[in-house]
Design a protein around this nucleic acid. Sequence first.
DNA 1: CGTTATCTCTGACACGCTGTCAACGTTAAG
DNA 2: CTTAACGTTGACAGCGTGTCAGAGATAACG
Lengths: 197, 197
Amino acid sequence: MSETAGGRRRVRSDGRRSAAAVLDAAVRVLGRHPGAKVERIAAEAGVTRQTVYAHYPSRPMLVTAVVDRITAEAVAALDAAESDGGTVTEQLRRWLDVTWQLFDRYPLLRHPSAAAAGPADSDRQHAPVAERLERMIRRGQVSGEFDGSLSPAWLVSATIALGHAAGEEVSAGRMTSSQTATVLYRSILRLYGAREP
Amino acid sequence: MSETAGGRRRVRSDGRRSAAAVLDAAVRVLGRHPGAKVERIAAEAGVTRQTVYAHYPSRPMLVTAVVDRITAEAVAALDAAESDGGTVTEQLRRWLDVTWQLFDRYPLLRHPSAAAAGPADSDRQHAPVAERLERMIRRGQVSGEFDGSLSPAWLVSATIALGHAAGEEVSAGRMTSSQTATVLYRSILRLYGAREP
DNA sequence: CGTTATCTCTGACACGCTGTCAACGTTAAG
DNA sequence: CTTAACGTTGACAGCGTGTCAGAGATAACG
């Protein structure tokens, strides 16, 4: 991570390149097949298994790095959706659309515990997202768009849970993706106590 | 399960007794520590690891048996809560109380994927419960207590998801158990479009 | 009571995956 | 060109799962 250590440790461009290749491969493979073996990831990166361990001390830590990367991508997309202005309800709508696309891209997001190291990873994944969603809910509550008798923190957890449930419905084939998106949107508005149009 | 096979295979009471001991131990150990090793379960049952395999071919199948047993207990408790009559809303209240107690007793119910063999186990666990809940919701919708514009099937999934989220809040120490129960109840009523009192 | 099939136990083994190590090439930085 | 960093090969230990064979207990049955 840092070459600022006291020693005059020469960093080789080769190293960072291969570390990046491993991380990219891990994002692709683990994103689609949580629980994939290290061997598989190494092969995808065009590298040996031991090289993976040279950059990431253990499988759980590699998973953590993957989660961080996906989270960063999610946060960026979410911020873009939030800065477009409009009603909080409209922002929420865009927010859900973006999240929905991410869920399609990374099935890992639907099976959090399948590859995670521990509860630490789950927090790491949810914290920045939850923070933004909570701000949005609080804004809607003070503006009167949403009812204020349930705490924003709980509503955040509930929303995430509902999102996971909706993802399950889709991947289980019980509903289509667009049906589910609509139903999820209505459910969340109800949960927030929003004035339904 | 059946000694009705054509051959006259002598069944020894010893066998069933030890199989039951293994299952009991598995329920205790896996209920509290999903992901526990077979060795641990065997020790808890006062039996060798190989004996466990003598009764349950593989670890996943043992987990399935455990899930079936806990599910049976849950279904029994749920049926009792349902048969007490009253408003659907009141039934729902009792339903949640019972579920809440079960969650306390079996942390396994909160970490479904931690020990499960595959999606089959999850269905196995949820199907009988979901069936009963769906009947209850449908009853509430036709009686006018609940709004009818969201499908009962989806509301069932959403309710289960909300329950898991609430359980997480408690075990993460972010809310007390009784606080969460109240909040969960209100959230579900909102989700169902119930006339709030 | 004695025979017999069933069950448990001990001990050992193969397999797969994770993580580590040393030795030998390779490649980039100075 | 020299040197330190890096990748690679091959081997190994550890752990958990699942299997097997043989010896010893024990319940069922005549």
